[in-house]
């Protein structure tokens, strides 16, 4: 395996969101890892984006109403009668 290429803040920032989405691929992901381990500013930025993503996910989730659950169960029951 070749040595990990050094990248700067600008390049790390450009790839940050795809890094958090785990869409970068192994090599680029290692490069960002490497940068984050040495750069406090980019590290706190990454932490912020990660927490924001988590907050969005939490905010988007809602309990399924019982009316919908019943409706879906009825759909399956009907289907299984055939």
């Amino acid at each position: 395996m070749s040595k990990i290429r050094q990248i700067g803040c600008e390049e790390a920032l450009k790839q940050l969101l795809e890094y958090l989405d785990q869409e970068l691929g192994e090599q680029h992901s290692h490069e960002v890892d490497q940068h984050l381990s040495t750069c406090r500013s980019c590290y706190s930025r990454m932490e912020f984006e990660k927490r924001l993503k988590q907050r969005l996910q939490d905010a988007g989730r809602q309990e399924v109403p019982d009316t919908l659950k019943d409706r879906i169960n009825r759909l399956f029951a009907e289907q299984n009668k055939n």
Partner: peptide, 27 residues
């Protein structure tokens, strides 16, 4: 479907912004 119902509903809610009935969309 049972396992992903909450996720389908979550997506339906945001697609419809609660204006068009998300429950109808899922059903």
């Amino acid at each position: 479907i049972a396992a992903m119902l909450d996720r389908l509903y979550a997506a339906a809610l945001r697609l419809t912004k609660g204006r068009c009935d998300a429950e109808d969309l899922v059903a």
